[in-house]
């Protein structure tokens, strides 16, 4: 059995295959190198695990798919804040701990709400690695890292819900609920951005709204989360050509005034960095 041939064949019909498993690209190499060491019987299992990672969380195409996609993101956020609040000494007591606790409660409520709506169709909670394989190694020991990752999650969440609204078109109950969660995530994002601003340093210029692409000061590691946020054209209208208070609308204001959606594939690639299994 030639595994690498299998991958080549998959790539032939699905050129994005290696992108799908991009965070796991190491796994392919590992698989190739260990294939000589494991028994043949184990290989189908390894392949199916790899496929699950690549395709298991696929882009939703129906209402339940959107709800499970949302649930996966809410599991991520709920566990993140639950662990953060539980970590003694991580979040300063008083207003910061109060705010993070409020956000945790909302994310836990979102998980419970979505599970209730989905009933036995609900996906189970993945196992998370909030260090993203060591990228954010001090996420639960350094408050600034904790806030930075929180901001990345909230801004991703806002983009993720927006990207799926079309599938829920006209659905009074589900679309409305999704929008109601979506705006709560935006409120969270706004507050976390203010918390980071108050910390100063590299985050001193943070605003509650997103300016251009990747205004976070976190670095290129979060570029995919903000890709496309610098868009200034809405429904064919160049916002920077519109009349502003003095002359035209500025480019900064044009990007701030519209939040952009993110495709499910892009969101799952981002979330995948934090999902172990």
């Amino acid at each position: 059995m030639n595994l690498l041939n299998v991958f080549d064949q998959i790539n032939a019909v699905d050129p994005e295959f290696s992108d799908r498993i991009s965070p796991r690209r190491e796994a392919i190499k590992n698989l190739a190198s260990i294939s000589g060491k494991v028994t043949l019987a184990a290989i189908p299992f390894l392949i199916s695990e790899l496929f699950k990672k690549a395709y298991g969380a696929t882009a939703p195409t129906d209402v339940n798919g959107v709800l499970n996609y949302a649930l996966t993101l809410e599991y991520l956020e709920a566990e993140y804040y639950t662990m953060g609040v539980a970590k003694a000494g991580l979040i300063p007591s008083g207003r910061p701990l109060g705010a993070i606790t409020t956000i945790r409660d909302h994310e836990v409520a979102h998980v419970n709400f979505l599970k209730q709506v989905l009933g036995n169709k609900a996906v189970s909670k993945p196992t998370f690695d909030f260090t993203a394989g060591g990228t954010f190694g001090n996420v639960f020991s350094n408050y600034d890292t904790f806030l930075a990752v929180a901001q990345a999650f909230e801004d991703t969440g806002v983009r993720a819900y927006k990207g799926q609204a079309g599938i829920l078109l006209g659905n009074r109950v589900v679309l409305t609920a999704a929008l109601q969660i979506h705006s709560v995530e935006a409120r969270h994002a706004s507050h976390i951005r203010q918390m980071r601003r108050a910390r100063g340093g590299g985050a001193a210029d943070q605003k509650p709204w997103i300016t251009g692409s990747n205004d976070t000061g976190i670095g290129a590691v979060v570029d995919p989360i903000y890709a496309g946020e610098n868009n200034v054209t809405q429904a064919g209208v160049d916002i920077t050509n519109l009349s502003g208070p003095m002359g035209k609308i500025s480019t900064n204001a044009a990007t701030q005034s519209f939040d952009e959606p993110l495709s499910a594939e892009a969101v799952l690639n981002i979330a995948g960095l934090f999902i172990k299994a």
Partner: peptide, 11 residues
Amino acid sequence: GKIVSVEARHA
């Protein structure tokens, strides 16, 4: 959707 989340950030 693009506008409402900005309003929520304001709020």
